[in-house]
Design a protein around this nucleic acid. Structure first.
Lengths: 220, 220
DNA sequence: CGGCTTTTTGATGTCCGTCAATCAGTGTGG
DNA sequence: CCACACTGATTGACGGACATCAAAAAGCCG
């Protein structure tokens, strides 16, 4: 599968696509979002380099959600048919795939908990932590500093609060000297306190079957 | 795998289980929940007869969430090893499994949207509708009336609001003559208006690979 | 320099949380 | 059969976190 690129705000896969693809993100950030009939939007998941998404939907053959590039991204895609073939040809891959989906599930389960039980400050803390841990785990960063190419409106749609309140809350954690966020630059100042702000929600590291292995073998 | 039963509030699988199982629910309601270090709880998903859960976590080999019987349930369980074996032996099953997980994903994606973008009234409307549609689709009910064996506290933990507010909101939709809820009996009075209250969030019916086929072949 | 998007800030209202008391339903044992 | 305990539901009073409306400021780009 060829490596494609897309610029910021490009819809990589649209919501009504009758034959959804699976994607492996190589470079940049993207997100998976769902829009309600009245126009409100929910950003279901934020995708980082190395993430695979849509294997299940590709096999199911229905999407409902769209995938959008948050900044300039490089990715590969795979049709549902190709996914099927791959899984049929090598059962080992099917297992890896399931494990991979387990990781993703844990991430969304965690996010569901964050969004239903924490206030704005806790949600932002947990989100920053989550991104940090994922980048760290893939060794895309070495220190608690990274680029976060999301607008505050996108953050709002992910965390279930309004843009205005995101802005206010960011100012607050900045004043508390937890995290410095200026534009798209995130600098974590006090990791311990940040974890506390997130009410001690456990880290994402699944630890196990995780990471490179699975992804490489899927060879998208 | 033998058919087991469990009474209300029984923890079928605990959060720290080092070898999580997959489950097929035969009878009754159950739910998947996650508890935060400070004791707050999030109910991630409500499971109905016919639902399968935990295939991904079983393969991944880590859980984090627990599964609890909401009333008296009958279920079968399968070890991670058994799932692996099954998938290796018959790749066709792996495909069905992925499709099945696509359905589940769509359900949780929908719920994420509901919880992040609707107010209490909308959340309850969307939840009632979702349960109704799922029961209907499996032909467990014929009319817009069913038994919902969840306490208001459990509802609260699922919808991300407080028990008290659940009570108030239920009263409100009762007064609006949308839905009659007394104890565990739910009677939908005005389906159209209920859909509107849920801001027109699309139904759960995946329509496609759905239903019996996949579940039977997994033969838990 | 315009014209755009994104962020910030203020003022005001409201949905929902918290605290606390009451009430209804269920089960238990004397 | 009734007192008692216990869980779950209901209601009121009050405060706070967050939404909404509106405007201005700050980046960003051609």
């Amino acid at each position: 599968m060829p490596l494609r690129t897309a610029k910021r705000d490009t819809v990589i896969m649209s919501a009504d696509d009758p034959a959804p693809h699976a994607f492996l993100l190589h470079r940049g950030f993207a997100y998976r979002s769902f829009s309600m009939p009245d126009g409100r939007r929910s950003i279901l998941d934020v995708l980082l380099p190395g993430d695979i998404t849509g294997l299940d939907y590709a096999v199911l053959g229905r999407g409902n959600h769209e995938i959008v590039a948050a900044n300039t991204v490089g990715y590969r895609s795979m049709t549902g048919a190709a996914v099927r073939e791959l899984m049929m040809s090598n059962p080992q891959i099917a297992l890896r795939t399931l494990a991979l989906m387990g990781e993703t599930r844990w991430r969304t389960d965690r996010h569901m908990t964050v969004v239903t039980r924490l206030d704005a400050r806790g949600r932002i803390a947990a989100f920053i932590l989550g991104i940090y841990e994922r980048l760290r785990q893939r060794e895309l960063i070495l220190r608690p500093t990274f680029n976060l190419p999301l607008t505050q409106e996108q953050l709002a749609d992910h965390l279930g609060i309004t843009m205005v309140h995101v802005s206010r809350t960011l100012r607050r954690i900045r004043e508390e000297r937890l995290v410095l966020i200026d534009r798209q630059v995130v600098i974590i100042l006090d990791l311990e306190e940040l974890r506390r702000a997130a009410s001690g929600i456990p880290p994402l590291s699944a630890g196990g079957v995780t990471s490179a292995g699975s992804r490489d073998e899927l060879a998208l």
